[in-house]
Design a protein around this nucleic acid. Sequence first.
DNA 1: TAGGGGTATTGAATCGATTTAGCCTTCGAA
DNA 2: TTCGAAGGCTAAATCGATTCAATACCCCTA
Lengths: 334, 334
Amino acid sequence: MAASVKDVAAVAGVSVGTVSNVMNRPEKVSLAVATRVQAAIDQLGFVRNDAARQLRAGRSSTIGLVVLDVRNPFFTDLARGAEDRAAADGFSVILGNSDEKADREATYLDLFEVQRMHGVLISPFGDITDRLRKLRDRGIPAVLVDRTSADDSFSSVSVDDIAGGALAVGHLLAKGRRRIAFIGGPLEIKQVSDRLTGASTAVATVPGATLEVILTDGLSVIAGREAGAELVSRDPARRPDAVFAANDLVATGVLQALIMQGADVRVPEHIALIGYDDIDFASAAVVPLSSVRQPSALIGQTAVEILLEEAADASLAPRQIVFQPELVVRESSV
Amino acid sequence: MAASVKDVAAVAGVSVGTVSNVMNRPEKVSLAVATRVQAAIDQLGFVRNDAARQLRAGRSSTIGLVVLDVRNPFFTDLARGAEDRAAADGFSVILGNSDEKADREATYLDLFEVQRMHGVLISPFGDITDRLRKLRDRGIPAVLVDRTSADDSFSSVSVDDIAGGALAVGHLLAKGRRRIAFIGGPLEIKQVSDRLTGASTAVATVPGATLEVILTDGLSVIAGREAGAELVSRDPARRPDAVFAANDLVATGVLQALIMQGADVRVPEHIALIGYDDIDFASAAVVPLSSVRQPSALIGQTAVEILLEEAADASLAPRQIVFQPELVVRESSV
DNA sequence: TAGGGGTATTGAATCGATTTAGCCTTCGAA
DNA sequence: TTCGAAGGCTAAATCGATTCAATACCCCTA
């Protein structure tokens, strides 16, 4: 049905090898022949069959990316960075959403294995180094994103959440705040505990500054609103003068509670507020929300770069890249 | 490097054809041989090379899905529905995000074409029926999702936005509201104009009910807040008693403006509010937001079903499936 | 004019799984 | 005992692009 190189070769009056050369090594072909072949390609509407190409090449020119949550702008920006970097070298990226489910993650890795992907980028859920090792044995390298490898056996590109926590709280302290509250949880999430660790170290550098930890059982708007409502219900003297929320969803909930009709708390006058992740909603909140932004696209680009190098030379030693987050100051903490 | 059927056959002491039969038509193989082959597969860690399989089969067993915005829960839910339905028949779905950009959309379609996808699901940006026709000529069927085909030359699965608008406003009217305001825009977006059309027809059925149209230049929180602020600034007698926002982002903005500190408007007592799409934030708003939900997963499932049928029989006539949206009543419109 | 050094092109082998035609056994029926 | 059928398996062809050794051709020089 569809035209193949053989058909193109017949129409152009050349051999199939030449058709292939026109497409892949044009410098080896005379101009006259190249134009003749190109004309045949256009005339027949020839489109390469990637399965055949891949079979011969031994592996795909596609990179698989598995993220924990496609709805999260952090990951979509990361994906965009990865796609752009990959496209520059003629590679495609296909996106899988594990949705923090082990079986979905496994399904994607299986798919990537039968497809003989050029490599895999993954923000892992749970411990999958054994699985990734199997992939690597088959010649498919893997790079972790947004998380470091437990034993450094794989390259990773992540962000320093401890520094991010310190950055956020350092900013609040610099604005003169002294009674800081950290709202978030559970601490089993490494990102959360790292951010708290950073917050603690920042507070420790300023004499007289205190850090109150208000744990939530998740990182949702509702959880934030409950914590915020508790603050509102307190004697004003016992309220913190600044809140560092573990992410922007929690911060949004806190903000809702603080400025709801009837609450006599003003942001940032009475309580300064800063979140984490810089999601779209952060700037669209009633009081635009300060936040900590991660260089998502850069993470994706860098991860692809490392992946391509490892795909080209399997003997390279794993590298751990850690980027620094960036402070985004808006009205909520001025 | 990696084991192939040939290696498996050698270890099991059978021919390659038998190995293939064990995997694909186990009923044609004796139990003794099947177990021996399976043992060899396990021992060698054999994993099928999909490129070879695909080359032979003539097409992939993967379905491509291109959506306008992966961050939008509507599309991720749709994707989930599509994946589940496809998996039931042994197909995989790979997800592309066009982000409402024609070049990204085209890139994905090119990729799907060289990969000889089994079929394509797409929420199109702009008019791409010619491009899809080319794909179909190559044996790759396409089904439109969330949008109907201009000339009915392709199957489509969508939601009745006119009915959705009527549903939302009908609900407000049933609650006794009479001065309805529609907030949203631009009307060039078909979904927006359809929802407005539905709203108008609903209002027309109730004597004395009026519909005020407040156009915005986009469907963002900010746009909603500006429109909401304008309502707050009005003489209370001139305010509507209910607002139908074109989507939940706009509704969220309106809500922010109405209940901000200092505003003397209560929701839903003074102004009832309903949005559209039922995004996560809708239920997490300060006042949980009523909304109109689309059967996203069902759309994805149905689209895959139609696609598989068309892939099996290219002569099938295109079908247009239209689902009805569903009302989700929360506090904002009680 | 023969030989040498390029360059352009060809044609066959190759990748790995599937499929089909056909071979060999076995078993039941005539 | 023989024939036929059915079941179980093998061997070879096939899909389409790439690659590489071999060939053809051209131009220049000795």
